[in-house]
Nucleic acid binder design. Structure first.
Ligand SMILES: [Mn+2]
Ligand SMILES: [Mn+2]
Ligand SMILES: [Mn+2]
Ligand SMILES: [Mn+2]
Lengths: 218, 218
DNA sequence: AATAAAATTTAGACATGTCTAAATATATAT
DNA sequence: ATATATATTTAGACATGTCTAAATTTTATT
């Protein structure tokens, strides 16, 4: 039986493996989990004993097939619950994270199957992140950062990288949501800020904001 | 911050206080929680320190107002989730318990409020048990055990006492559900079994079965 | 290649929640 | 009232997950 802590570590490693490539370092895990490197070392030994990860002293860790499937299933549950909260319980996209963080650990295959049915098999969560299927497979959408979009190109917002409440509220304030059409009409080279048109009005956004918005070009 | 274990103990004490009257003994809690008396002693000390219960050595425990409200809220969450599972996710009433046992510990006032709205403010769970309101108040329905019903009286099944999967499946097999009309047409005095009519057919049930069905007389 | 800096692991501690076995208190029986 | 049985608590142990401080290994610098 896997514990809640083990699931959280596996999920962190799963995300880090995708973010970086190759082995995930102890410090990277400690940063993401907001814990100490020594705690990480303790835990990765346990996870390696249980065959969820490959761990070589001082060399970082990587998920085994078993670990990847387990982690993907936690992510699947997290994102399905986020959809439920937004679609059915009137949560906004900046309110779902902490609750999903708890709900993702509920153990019941039937529950998550039926939730999937009830939500009519959603493919993406409220932040535009893809929902892994039962086997841990995940659809790779061809999305790019808004900061990479060429001048005068039209694109659609399909996701966010930073999904902190602060950033999401900033987007809300400026009426940027998933599905919103965006046109880049100016780029400042000195600070890499850009002017965009949304809902027929102009908005200047910083490099940081542009970096954290995923779009699909038309 | 209250822990999952503390919540489970409070809930057990809450149910036992209702079942018996007066102080709840260490052994009664140990039985209900399927743990050892020594573990109970350890935990009741913590709960008393946190003002959830009154504990006098060797004299058992009783909930404080704070403890009662906290316990009732766990019960509220448990029962609302059970309604959700049955009404929305196609669970049957014998499948919900273990999952609700986990879901009841999710911490989010908004979640449980919105779930209540989404389910349209249910007053009872799938087993006929009343759902406490936000303040821990609970409606007392005038229900009695089927074994107490007089000969030839017509009544309606409104709940069960034993909500084990075994018993619930027995009821399913014999087409007894909440809302089912029941007429007692014969009582055997030697073993206290009885013959009832449901859906126009006769059925003989044991004393134990009759004891575990709650009904409302007409 | 030797040294300094950074990353990682180990050692020892603590908190939570559990257990067994032993001690103590309460209840029951003679 | 004393002895016996039952209920409860205490003592000491263990597992999980965390931490700080010290030791060790790896990486970067000169
Ligand atoms: Mn989590
Ligand atoms: Mn998300
Ligand atoms: Mn529980
Ligand atoms: Mn119930």
């Amino acid at each position: 039986m896997i514990t809640l802590s083990e699931e959280n570590y596996l999920k962190a490693i799963y995300h880090l493996e995708r973010q970086m490539g190759g082995a995930v370092s102890t410090n990277a895990i400690a940063d993401k989990m907001e814990t100490k490197a020594s705690s990480v070392t303790d835990m990765v030994k346990k996870l390696a004993d249980k065959d969820y990860i490959i761990y070589k002293k001082y060399q970082g860790v990587s998920l085994t097939a078993k670990g990847n499937k387990t982690a993907a299933n936690v992510v699947r549950k997290h994102r399905l619950w986020e959809v439920f909260l937004v679609e059915k319980l009137n949560f906004s996209w900046d309110e779902v994270h902490d609750v999903a963080e708890q709900l993702e650990h509920i153990k019941s295959p039937k529950l998550i199957n039926e939730l999937d049915v009830f939500l009519e098999f959603p493919t993406h969560d409220p932040h535009g992140d893809p929902i892994p299927d039962k086997d841990g497979n995940i659809s790779k959408l061809d999305k790019i950062s808004l900061s990479k979009v060429a001048l005068n190109d039209l694109c659609t917002c399909v996701g966010v990288i930073d999904s902190s409440a602060e950033f999401l509220k900033y987007l809300d304030k400026h009426k940027i949501a998933l599905g919103t059409q965006i046109k880049v009409i100016e780029k400042e080279s000195f600070d890499e800020s850009m002017t965009i048109v949304i809902h027929n009005s102009e908005l200047n956004i910083s490099k940081t904001v542009a970096n954290n918005i995923y779009v699909k070009t038309h």
